[in-house]
Amino acid sequence: MTETLLLFAIVAFIGIATPGPTVLLALTNGSRLGVRASVPGMVGAVLSDFLLIGAVALGLGALLAASEFWFSVFKWVGVAYLAYLGLRLLRSTGSLALPSEESGGFAPSRRTVFLRSLLVAVTNPKGYLFFSAFLPQFIVPSEPQWPQYLALAVTFASIDFAVMLGYACAGAQAMKVLRAKGALWLERVCGGALLALAGSLALYRKQA
């Protein structure tokens, strides 16, 4: 199992490090709120990892693969939410740099930061289909499956948290270097990327 987890960790790291919605949120949260205030969003994304993998273990991934209706429900909810977040970033004035007591800046609540990342992940049907296709390759059918799924979930979530932490730190450092004008461009780029991801999800079709 150790060798299997190591191989899984390598493949998972490559997939997670490629910018996706939750990673982009970690980057923007780091730049706008600072690393510490970004942690609830990372926790939300990590919780979504356990929820998605648990759902796949229970067969939800197979249900979405088989049901056009439920696949479409998840897909369009995910598209709408990604587009909403992307448009908010595009419409930002770039003035939402690290809120502080001195500046009197407004920061979203920890609950809001947490829910944004959680909802982005759990409403994306590609995540369920990805785990449904990906995880069984690392499961030994002749052995108890729930302990294996739990080990894979802990491994994936740990890597996910570490990668998001790195992106949040990068965002916070970029804010210090780029200042207000750079913050505007960073938010524009991340907003455009989220809209592009919403578009790609809207065009996504299940494999027959």
Rank of each mutant, 00 (worst) to 15 (best):
residue 166 G to Y: 00
residue 60 L to I: 13
residue 131 F to V: 11
residue 107 A to Y: 09
residue 79 V to G: 07
residue 72 S to H: 12
residue 114 F to K: 14
residue 67 S to R: 10
residue 154 V to M: 02
residue 15 G to R: 10
residue 156 F to I: 10
residue 181 K to F: 07
residue 77 V to R: 03
residue 81 Y to R: 12
residue 107 A to P: 02
residue 207 Q to D: 08
residue 204 Y to K: 10
residue 59 G to M: 06
residue 111 R to N: 04
residue 140 V to T: 15
residue 87 L to G: 15
residue 71 F to C: 06
residue 39 V to M: 04
residue 99 P to D: 03
residue 184 L to D: 04
residue 181 K to C: 04
residue 139 I to R: 06
residue 40 P to D: 05
residue 143 E to D: 11
residue 108 P to E: 03
residue 16 I to L: 00
residue 119 L to E: 04
residue 138 F to E: 06
residue 167 Y to L: 11
residue 138 F to L: 08
residue 9 A to K: 11
residue 108 P to D: 04
residue 81 Y to C: 11
residue 1 M to P: 03
residue 40 P to F: 10
residue 143 E to I: 07
residue 42 M to W: 00
residue 34 G to E: 05
residue 63 L to W: 07
residue 152 L to C: 03
residue 163 V to H: 01
residue 186 L to Y: 13
residue 116 R to P: 04
residue 89 L to Q: 12
residue 157 A to G: 08
residue 79 V to H: 05
residue 185 W to I: 06
residue 14 I to R: 11
residue 95 S to N: 08
residue 132 S to I: 05
residue 86 G to W: 08
residue 152 L to T: 05
residue 91 R to D: 11
residue 94 G to I: 09
residue 205 R to L: 12
residue 171 G to F: 13
residue 1 M to V: 13
residue 56 V to F: 03
residue 183 A to L: 14
residue 103 S to G: 12
residue 121 A to S: 14
residue 139 I to Y: 01
residue 106 F to C: 07
residue 104 G to I: 11
residue 50 F to R: 00
residue 117 S to G: 13
residue 196 A to R: 10
residue 48 S to W: 01
residue 33 L to Q: 00
residue 189 V to C: 06
residue 114 F to A: 12
residue 96 L to M: 08
residue 193 A to T: 03
residue 151 A to F: 02
residue 143 E to F: 07
residue 117 S to W: 00
residue 31 S to R: 01
residue 76 W to R: 14
residue 192 G to I: 06
residue 79 V to A: 09
residue 134 F to L: 12
residue 86 G to F: 13
residue 202 A to M: 15
residue 62 A to I: 09
residue 85 L to N: 09
residue 34 G to T: 02
residue 153 A to E: 00
residue 98 L to S: 07
